[in-house]
């Protein structure tokens, strides 16, 4: 049994749990985007950051992958954490301004607008890769993946053509935190008429 504190509240956890697991068990809310219970955490969106304090010293870590330890002092909603989240949301807001989920979260944290350049006002994907992990871990087909590097990174299929591996189950749409997968689904599974007949063109 591992004992530590979240927001000064004593909590008990077991080895192998993460800070986020423990917080959720105790009903302590930590916002997340790329976290889904059905797949392994990947720490992509950074929204679940929490502050770990040790005397005068403190650090900010992502709770979804941080393993529990005895004596941790976790703060889920401290000023420092809120500040980091505002930064993250401001950046997300510039990356995918069209997502209503991001807008809602930004508003919750008092982020009205972003100081960063908006490249595509229609963009709604935060590139958290949850759809990719679900396709691989839950469905088991890996029809979609991250394509490209850096600023060119997108979610897609090989050659951006409807994928033969796709089983058209729609799991990616269901798990997507921003609803971005919805308009991308047809690019993955193909048009209705050819969906069942991907030919080897």
């Amino acid at each position: 049994m591992i004992e530590f504190k979240i927001n000064d509240q004593p909590v008990e956890a077991q080895a192998g749990w993460t800070v986020l697991d423990t917080a959720r068990q105790y009903g302590i809310h930590i916002p997340t985007l790329c976290h889904h219970e059905a797949v392994e955490p990947s720490g992509n969106c950074r929204l679940c950051v929490v502050e770990l304090r040790d005397g005068d010293w403190s650090k900010v870590v992502i709770s979804c992958m941080y393993p529990v330890q005895d004596g941790l002092q976790v703060y889920t909603d401290s000023d420092r954490v809120k500040n980091v989240r505002r930064w993250i949301l401001e950046m997300l807001l510039s990356e995918c301004p069209a997502s209503s989920e991001i807008q809602r979260l930004a508003q919750e944290y008092g982020v009205e607008q972003t100081r960063f350049a908006i490249h595509d006002p229609e963009e709604d994907c935060i590139l958290c890769g949850l759809c990719v992990r679900t396709c691989k871990e839950v469905v088991g087909v890996s029809a979609i993946s991250m394509v490209g590097r850096g600023v060119h990174k997108v979610i897609g299929t090989p050659y951006m053509m409807p994928s033969d591996a796709c089983v058209a189950c729609g799991s990616c749409v269901t798990v997507c935190p921003t609803g971005a997968m919805r308009r991308r689904l047809d690019l993955v599974r193909g048009e209705p008429k050819t969906r069942m007949a991907h030919s080897a063109v």
Binding site: A13, T22, R24, Y26
Partner: peptide, 11 residues
């Protein structure tokens, strides 16, 4: 359960 799907809930 708060989250039966996470390790604490599963346990």
């Amino acid at each position: 359960e708060p989250f039966p799907c996470l390790p604490p809930g599963m346990a």
